[in-house]
C-alpha cells in the first residue's frame, strides 16, 4: 500500500472515477487550468480535457445550479466550492433543489451530485477561509454530509459519494490536506457512507470526533496512555448526516464516559446531536456527564495568530479534556 497525503487521496479518487465513468465531471473556480487553489484537481484538465474539467465564473450559486441540472440530466458532477465559507450563495440550490429532488418528484428524479468543500481553520486564513459550516447542513433530510479525516477514508468515501444516487456534501479539512498522510490500497475499494469507524480501541473514555480534531484526539490518547495509564476509545464519525447512531451508542456504552470533540462552534454543532443520541439511547450506561470540547461560540476564526490559536483546538487542549474525564 502506498502512503499518500489527504489531498492526493482526493485527486486519486477523482481521477479513478473519471476514468471509470465518462459521466463523471468536475467543475468549480480554478479547478481546470490551474488545477485548483489547493491542487486537488491537478492534472485532471490535462488528462480529461476542458469538457470534463470546467472552470466556472465566481458564482457558487451557478456552480451548484449547473451541477443540479447536470445530475438531473444523468451526469455525475463533482462541484468544488473553493472554500466552504463561500457555499452560502449555493445553499438554495443545494437545500431547496438537490436535497428535495427525489422527494418532490415522488422518486422519478434523483440528483447524483457531489459538492466538495474545503473547510476548517489553522491555516491563517481568517474569517472567509477558515469556517466550519457543516452543522447547518446536518438537519436537511435528502442530503448526506461526509467529513473524512484520513486519506484512506477520503478516497473510499469520495468514490462512494460519486457513485451515490443522491446529493452528497463532501467536506475536506484543508489543514489536513498536506499534514495528514496515510496508507491507501493500490486496488479499488470504497468506504460506505453512513458508517462511523473506530480509530482506536480503549476502555476508559470514549472520544467521538471527525476531521482535524480526530487527529488531535489520537495524539492526546497516546499521551494519556503513556503518562496517565488511561486508554481512550476513539470513534471517527466520518459521516455527519445522517449519523451512524448504532456505532455512536456502541462506543458510548463501551466506557460510559464520552467526550465529543469538533472544531466547529459548540452550540448547535454536530456534537449536540451526537450527545442527544447517547442521552436517548444509553443514559443508564453513562458514568459521567457527556462532555463537549469544541470551538468557542464566536462569529469566525480570527486572523491574528494568537487569537487563531486560541480559537483552534490542539492536542494539548484535547488531552486536558480527556484526562479530566478519565479521572472523573
Amino acid at each position: 500500500m502506498a502512503v499518500i497525503s489527504y489531498i492526493d487521496a482526493v485527486n486519486s479518487a477523482l481521477r479513478e472515477e473519471m476514468s471509470r465513468d465518462s459521466k463523471v465531471f468536475v467543475l468549480g473556480e480554478d479547478v481546470g487550468f490551474k488545477g485548483g487553489v489547493f491542487k486537488a484537481t491537478q492534472g485532471l484538465y490535462e488528462q480529461f480535457g476542458e469538457a470534463r474539467v470546467l472552470d466556472t465564473p465566481l458564482a457558487e450559486s451557478a456552480i451548484a445550479g449547473v451541477a443540479v441540472g447536470a445530475a438531473a440530466y444523468g451526469f455525475r458532477p463533482v462541484a468544488e466550492i473553493q472554500f466552504a465559507d463561500f457555499i452560502m450563495p449555493a445553499v438554495n440550490q443545494i437545500v431547496s433543489e438537490a436535497a428535495k429532488m427525489r422527494y418532490r418528484s415522488n422518486g422519478d428524479w434523483n440528483c447524483p451530485l457531489v459538492i466538495r468543500a474545503p473547510y476548517g481553520g489553522g491555516i491563517h486564513g481568517a474569517l472567509y477561509h477558515s469556517q466550519s459550516v457543516e452543522a447547518m447542513f446536518c438537519n436537511i433530510p435528502g442530503l448526506k454530509v461526509v467529513a473524512p479525516s484520513t486519506p484512506y477514508d477520503v478516497k473510499g468515501l469520495l468514490i462512494s459519494a460519486i457513485r451515490d444516487e443522491d446529493p452528497v456534501l463532501f467536506f475536506e479539512h484543508k489543514r489536513c490536506y498536506r499534514l495528514i498522510k496515510g496508507e491507501v490500497p493500490d486496488t479499488e475499494y470504497v468506504v460506505p457512507i453512513g458508517k462511523a469507524d473506530v480509530k482506536r480501541q480503549g476502555k476508559h473514555i470514549t472520544v467521538i470526533s471527525y476531521g482535524l480534531t480526530l487527529h488531535f484526539a489520537l495524539q492526546a490518547a497516546e499521551k494519556l496512555a503513556q503518562e496517565d495509564g488511561y486508554s481512550a476509545h476513539i470513534l471517527d464519525l466520518r459521516t455527519l448526516y445522517p449519523l451512524d447512531k448504532e456505532s455512536i451508542v456502541e462506543a458510548a456504552r463501551r466506557t460510559g464516559k464520552v467526550l465529543i470533540v469538533h472544531e466547529d462552534n459548540k452550540e448547535g454543532g454536530v456534537g449536540a446531536e451526537v450527545s442527544a443520541v447517547i442521552a436517548e439511547e444509553c443514559l443508564f450506561e453513562l458514568d459521567a456527564p457527556i462532555k463537549r470540547l469544541c470551538g468557542p461560540d464566536v462569529p469566525a476564526i480570527p486572523y491574528n495568530g494568537i487569537m487563531e490559536k486560541f480559537f483552534m483546538l490542539s492536542p494539548d487542549k484535547v488531552y486536558e479534556a480527556m484526562k479530566e474525564l478519565a479521572e472523573y
Binding site: 460510559g256 443508564f284 450506561e285 458514568d287
Partner: peptide, 8 residues
C-alpha cells in the same frame, strides 16, 4: 452521587 451506569 452515583452515575446511571454505576446504579444500574
Amino acid at each position: 452521587r452515583f452515575s446511571p451506569a454505576v446504579l444500574k
